[in-house]
């Protein structure tokens, strides 16, 4: 009788220990997952601060010029690449992946270029390469003169569908 009670106690203790050990293991994993989650959050905040600091240091607003690119609809033009020149100097050459093009078609806007420019008159030229209506190779350019003052300058390259002419339209607008 005593032996049976002893064995039963041992079995119960072992079961309880096993269940506690499992619980502890689960808690530990939960803690690591929570800690990682917290770390991810902090990394995002740190990345934000670094991004802002980098921009402040390298592109102060007095000289900053930003060029965005957006696509509206995109039925008549499939974007492959863009070459951007400011004052006849190539500042960006960009090749697009399908995923990036899709993101643009769905309403995303790409920050194509950020740089510094002295105050005064400047010219921006953009060359768009891709497939035009009926899948033909298509290369078009557009240019725009603008004045850079002491505030940050933002420009946007837009690709729109001109339904009347069934052709894509390329423009530069000041934001």
């Amino acid at each position: 009788m005593k032996l049976r009670t002893f064995i039963l106690t041992i079995v119960l203790c072992a079961t309880a220990w096993h269940s506690n050990a499992q619980q502890a293991g689960g808690d530990e994993q939960q803690t690591v997952a929570k800690q990682l989650q917290q770390l991810r959050k902090e990394v995002i905040a740190l990345n934000r601060d670094l991004f802002v600091l980098e921009e402040d240091l390298l592109f102060p607003s007095s000289t900053q010029v930003v060029v965005y690119l957006s696509v509206d609809v995109g039925t008549y033009f499939k974007l492959d690449a863009v070459e951007l020149k400011i004052d006849d100097k190539v500042v960006t050459e960009y090749l697009y992946t399908d995923r990036q093009v899709d993101a643009l078609y769905r309403g995303g806007v790409q920050r194509l270029h950020i740089g510094n420019l002295a105050q005064g008159e400047h010219q921006i030229s953009a060359f768009f390469i891709g497939l035009g209506p009926e899948g033909r190779e298509y290369k078009r350019a557009t240019s725009f003169n603008f004045n850079k003052d002491s505030d940050a300058k933002a420009l946007e390259l837009t690709i729109n569908d001109a339904t009347g002419s069934q052709q894509p339209e390329f423009n530069v607008v000041e934001l």
Binding site: A103, R106, G108
Partner: peptide, 8 residues
């Protein structure tokens, strides 16, 4: 710009 990254 957020959307551009989100869609990718």
């Amino acid at each position: 710009e957020v959307l551009y990254y989100y869609f990718q």
